[in-house]
Computed example of a mutant assay.
Amino acid sequence: MLQVGMFHSLEVVNEVPFGFYLDGKDKGEILLPTKSAPLGCKLGDQVNAFIYHDSDDRIIATTKRPKVLVDHCAYLKVVSVSKVGVFMDWGLEKDLLVPFSEQTYPMSEGLSYVVYVFCDEETGRLAASTRLSDFLYEESSDEGGTFEPRQEVELLICAKTDMGYKAIINGSHLGLLFRDEVFKPIKIGHSMKGFIKSIREDGKINLCFQFHDPTARNTLEEQIIEDLIAHDGLSTLTDKSSADEISKRFNVSKNAYKKALGSLYRQKRILLDKTKVTLVKKSD
């Protein structure tokens, strides 16, 4: 069955002055306008096309890739406000509607928001929503996947709360990054890697960017040694460096980096002073 909001490989079955018609199976023939057709398109070709509704609510095809597909989340910008909701730029000629009923709070033109794209069951048309909890799972045991502590995941930061930040996990679940786990500047809409820190008794998911146990410290220590080797045994990134510099190099907090340096110093693997870190050669 053809799904609106997705790419499908469809056969060109008719050519007209303004484009081509594709075999849309249960949706009938679907127009692929000339400007959206591949160069040299002809009858019998298979075209990988995105299916959606145009401004006249007709099902139409394009080879242009939108910024987000149906049943996925994205950080999009509001380009206009109307009587029925707001419209967001998602990379196609017809902007994406977020009805007022799907807005957690009023959305403003010129600002960007994380939204979930869905297909309206009544109209069959695509729309978006900021009510992420209506579409995403909030417990690890929910259908859609079970997570384990220490598992690496893809995160999309979607909201700021009094406790920290909410993030979308692997496009399917919602989790929480506590404020003390955020050691680098992050903003709504940022995509990054993170970890499952723990699963609470109620099934809710806690997230983190790093672990503070001995295993994690040992891994960081080896990363520091490898970095020193790659830079001829010398680094100006010391325990006096800024948290931002440390985060950019090793993706860890300044506190974690200082502890790893201290451990390497006690092991006599490095020398430390205010301006540099020096690798101790085995023959020294």
Rank of each mutant, 00 (worst) to 15 (best):
Q3A: 15
N14Q: 13
E15R: 12
P17A: 00
L22S: 03
D23W: 02
G24R: 08
P33I: 10
S36K: 06
P38R: 08
L39T: 10
K42F: 06
D45F: 04
A49I: 02
R58H: 14
L76S: 10
K77W: 03
K77T: 15
F87T: 01
M88I: 00
W90K: 02
L92N: 06
K94T: 02
V98K: 03
T104A: 05
V114D: 07
D120T: 04
R125K: 08
A128W: 05
R131G: 03
Y137T: 14
G144K: 04
G144I: 06
G145T: 03
F147R: 09
R150N: 09
Q151I: 12
L156S: 06
C158A: 11
A167V: 01
N170S: 08
G171T: 08
E181K: 10
I188W: 04
G189D: 12
H190A: 06
K193T: 13
I199E: 10
R200P: 05
K204I: 00
N206T: 06
N206V: 07
L207I: 03
L207E: 04
C208R: 08
P214T: 00
A216R: 02
R217N: 12
E221M: 14
E222R: 09
Q223L: 08
Q223A: 13
L234S: 01
D239V: 03
K240H: 10
S241D: 13
A243P: 13
E245Q: 12
I246E: 02
R249K: 15
F250R: 10
N255Y: 13
K259M: 15
S263D: 02
Y265V: 13
I270L: 03
D273H: 05
K276T: 15
K282V: 15
K282R: 15
